[in-house]
Simulated scan of single mutants.
Amino acid sequence: MSSLPSIVVVGAGRLGTHLAFHLIRQDISVTALITSRPEIVRTWQWIPGATAVRSRFEHAALPGELVFLCVPDRAIASVARDAEPFLKGKMVVHCSGAHNAAILQALANEGSMTGVFHPLQSFPASVDTRQAPFQNISIGIEADDKVLSGHLEAIARALGSRPLRLPADPQSRSLYHLAAVLASNALIPLMDAAITAMRVSGMGDERAASEALLPLVRGTLNNLDHVSPGEALTGPIARGDLDTIRSHLIALSAHQELKELYVLAMRATARIARDASRIEKATYDSIIQLLR
């Protein structure tokens, strides 16, 4: 797309490799991918339209106008500092949801336009050319400069995503990132606990438990795509079924870690059911008393 700036992607982890690949797939010029991972150098050459892979910053490696820093949060400031001679005057964005653009202030002081481009997505370990992980997701964007903001929004749309304006205030940004962590990362310990409970029950190994439970998870997510959490809620809490909750607690008496997670999750579930008028206050109080 000739109307968009040429791009350099720094970092070839999950996000960096997916971003570079799908930008190229949308005919957006990616002039360099900078990575220290040798396996990326070996595989990148087989991608149609792939550009040069560099292991370090060089003047020749940065012909692009817009640089995406797809590096771990803890490395953003140090990478920006070390690469300052090559980034000065360019448009530079990082891809962290936890930090605002102020972490790139040193570059802004040297004349760079800075911002944030944070895809709300969990990317797999390797690129699957059959998948479109940017399709129909939201991408958080922060940029004070209107030109840079326009470019980032256009790139998000070209990838099939929805631009989402991010708050610059640090506390609001932390709450935004916390929301993403809860929606993505917090599912993992819950699923791990469910698999453990299924396995301990004698219903098969971890693989069998996953195969049995994942359709249930997908069904719940599908419901959430159409209704609110309170309306999507099913199960004993939503029914006010104290006997079933009591039987769960008895079964968990020998599994303290599972019990602690169950109690926390069910207390939160009861609050949602109460607030959505799925259960009466008296039923809610009885559930909370049982879960003490």
Rank of each mutant, 00 (worst) to 15 (best):
I7W: 13
V8T: 15
A12V: 12
T17I: 07
H18V: 10
L19G: 08
I24D: 03
I24V: 07
Q26F: 03
A32I: 06
A32Y: 08
A32G: 15
L33E: 14
S36I: 14
I40P: 02
I40W: 10
I40F: 12
V41F: 07
V41C: 03
R42S: 04
W46D: 06
P48G: 03
R54Y: 15
S55I: 03
E58Y: 02
P63N: 12
L69G: 10
D73S: 10
V79K: 10
A83V: 01
L87T: 00
G89R: 02
M91E: 03
C95T: 00
N100S: 05
N100M: 04
A101M: 07
A101Y: 11
L104Q: 07
L107E: 05
L107K: 11
N109T: 14
G111T: 00
S112D: 09
T114N: 12
V127T: 03
T129M: 08
A132F: 10
Q135P: 08
S138E: 14
S138V: 10
G140K: 06
I141P: 10
D144H: 15
D145K: 15
V147W: 15
L148R: 14
L148E: 15
S149T: 13
L152Y: 15
A154C: 12
A158G: 11
R162A: 13
Q171S: 11
Q171I: 11
S174E: 11
L175W: 03
H177N: 10
L182C: 04
L187Y: 11
I188G: 14
I188S: 15
D192S: 14
A194M: 14
T196M: 14
D205I: 06
D205Q: 08
A209G: 04
S210K: 05
A212L: 00
A212S: 01
L213Y: 05
P215S: 02
G219K: 04
T220E: 11
T220W: 08
D225C: 11
S228Y: 06
G230I: 01
A232H: 11
L233R: 09
T234L: 09
P236E: 12
R239P: 09
R239Y: 05
G240M: 06
L242S: 08
D243T: 05
I250R: 02
A251F: 01
A251L: 06
S253F: 00
S253K: 02
L258V: 02
L261S: 01
L264A: 09
M266C: 08
A270C: 09
R271I: 01
S277F: 03
I279V: 01
K281I: 04
K281L: 07
A282P: 00
T283Y: 01
I287M: 00
I288Q: 01
I288D: 00
I288S: 00
Q289T: 02
